[in-house]
């Protein structure tokens, strides 16, 4: 367990510049809106919140997609995997690191928007939506990480988009239940339907499905990665 935690914290450290840029973006936009829009800009605040929640999901995905490839390309993976850890622990570390990163992002986003809401006097329930976006972000990152263990990031991105988009395609034939297959798409839709008045508009059935899929994706990624050479030419 300690190895997983060490790898996760190290992963967050390595991504700190990108994280900082995202956090500055969060603060910057909200501050700008807070300064210029004032209490009458509730609709703008809401749109901004929805946008930042969606970006948070994409952020988790983007960071995860090239994590294994980047480690292999930089050869840093050699010193890590030559230590007494299992490949599954390594993948779990990256997943946990990705979850920590998105936690920081989502937590900061929720905090900043709560403060702005409080300041301009709007009473809205943000946190359930933040939590849902966080779970979706971890799931999207897990799908991306799974493909990233054996594919070049470009191909991994294509495959991830396909997997995340499949429920939307299946919805036409299977109905609304199809959106729960890989519920990232479901959460995205609920965020788009979010409003200050209604709060989180969706159900929470997707959470156990998402958690099960995250565990399954970890197991699959660990299995695939355990059979991969990590030091051959990767291009």
């Amino acid at each position: 367990m300690k190895a997983i935690w060490l790898i996760a914290v190290n992963f967050v450290r390595e991504q700190r510049i990108v994280l900082l840029v995202f956090l500055l973006w969060l603060f910057g936009f909200v501050a700008l809106f807070g300064l210029f829009t004032g209490p009458n800009g509730a609709a703008e605040y809401q749109a901004l919140f929805q946008q930042q929640a969606l970006y948070g999901i994409v952020y988790g995905l983007l960071v995860a997609i090239s994590s294994v490839h980047g480690e292999r390309k930089s050869r840093r993976i050699l010193a890590v995997l030559s230590k007494g850890i299992y490949r599954g622990e390594y993948i779990a570390g990256l997943m946990l690191g990705n979850a920590l990163l998105t936690s920081i992002y989502m937590g900061t986003m929720g905090l900043v928007h709560t403060m702005i809401m409080y300041r301009v006097g709007i009473h809205a329930r943000l946190w359930p939506t933040v939590a849902a976006a966080w779970v979706a972000s971890i799931l999207a990152g897990s799908v991306a990480l799974f493909f990233g263990t054996f594919l070049h990031p470009a191909f991994a991105a294509i495959c991830t988009s396909f997997v995340l988009g499949v429920p939307a395609l299946l919805e036409r034939t299977l109905g609304a239940v199809a959106t729960q297959i890989v519920p990232v798409n479901y959460v995205l839709r609920q965020i788009l339907n979010y409003s200050y008045e209604r709060g989180w508009p969706g159900s929470w059935h997707f959470v156990p499905i998402a958690i099960s899929e995250i565990v399954l994706l970890w197991a699959m990624a660990a299995m695939v990665f355990s059979r991969r050479d990590v030091t051959v030419a990767i291009e």
């Binding site: 450290r13 050869r75 840093r76 050699l78 010193a79 030559s82 230590k83 007494g84 490949r87």
Partner: peptide
């Protein structure tokens, strides 16, 4: 994996995290 805990390895063209 656990046997590697008893091994020390230095790779060629070693590369490390920024710490």
């Amino acid at each position: 994996a656990r046997t590697r805990r008893r091994i020390g390895f230095l790779a060629e063209n070693v590369s490390f995290y920024h710490r």
